[in-house]
Design a protein around this nucleic acid. Structure first.
Lengths: 180, 180
DNA sequence: GTCTATAATGCGATAGAC
DNA sequence: GTCTATCGCATTATAGAC
């Protein structure tokens, strides 16, 4: 069910997808869909909730000191693992601006952006870190979307980690250069 | 007019924006909007056309040999200039997948993806170049969107060029490593 | 738990007066 | 060039039979 919805949301966007369309793909009627989810937003929420919760947890771990603090810099490998685990949802959320601007998700969205950037860059909050932070997140998501479906997951994991580390190194270099 | 439409499209997506909403923001009625644009798609097209045409031209220049060929690798600075010139439209197009999948834009979209990737990576078309190419485009667009509106344009231009060059260098390094 | 039927609303788009 | 008014249609959502 949620799989069918994600298919259609990814292809036509949230607003471009009708409950009729979802019901048709499932071979049932609209009313049957409404039995399980009382609104369209509820479908979106159910689809996205697990990925969001997990990301908040992932970002929270660092703050609570469960992992050794590195002063700055995230666990790139951990974030790549996360992306691969929620591959399709992550790709969808970065492509459909409507989804995150829904009332049900807008508060979570603000939380997310803040925590992920902090996780990624270790607490800096100047223009430079904002720029590189957003670039890194978008680069990883973009690479994820562009990757052909037939490439092996281990190859993809390796390349994405490489990409993330490379960007993180680039940020550090840029930050150092601007500081002196 | 087109500015108001871009505001709303950026915030709620193409499908999520109603003609009523556009008319309300302009302080006129729906019918008044329809006088200038006969369909909703026409608004999108008018909004996006200049940016798309210019990008196709930019990508075309390299093929026609007007600029010195470098074998591989794009003119990063030229692309950054382009992005800054069409800042808001470029940001919108990378965030709203529904827009490019509209019938009016779908053919241009296919053209674009091909030419820009070729421009960026110099004709390679393997999995690695696809990954890094898409990552670079998304990173630049993401950085553009995240940049606070008050930063100076020269600073932004410099940082974006840095970012693009850094990613291009990363791709070359990765390609070299995998070749041996 | 799934159906048919229907209510209520908003949408894109058109016609014609001013 | 902008308005009022309206058409036809798809949408979200509900009520009640089975």
């Amino acid at each position: 069910m949620l799989g069918a919805a994600l298919d259609l949301f990814s292809e036509h966007g949230f607003e471009g997808t009708s409950l009729q369309g979802i019901a048709d793909r499932l071979g049932v009627t609209k009313a049957a869909v409404y039995y399980h989810f009382h609104t369209k937003d509820e479908i979106l929420l159910a689809l996205v909730q697990p990925a969001i919760d997990e990301l908040l947890m992932l970002a929270g771990e660092k703050d609570s000191g469960l992992r050794p603090q590195r002063g700055r810099g995230m666990d790139v490998a951990g974030y790549v693992d996360y992306l691969l685990r929620h591959r399709r949802v992550a790709a969808y959320l970065t492509r459909d601006a409507t989804a995150m601007s829904r009332p049900v998700l807008v508060e979570k969205g603000a939380q997310l952006r803040g925590q992920v950037e902090a996780m990624l860059l270790g607490g800096d909050a100047d223009d430079l870190s904002t720029l590189w932070g957003s670039a890194t997140l978008q680069a990883l998501a973009g690479a994820l979307m562009a990757a052909p479906p037939d490439v092996s997951e281990t190859w993809l994991r390796e390349e994405l980690t490489d990409l993330g580390m490379h960007l993180l190194a680039g940020y550090r270099k840029a930050a150092r250069r601007r500081q002196t």
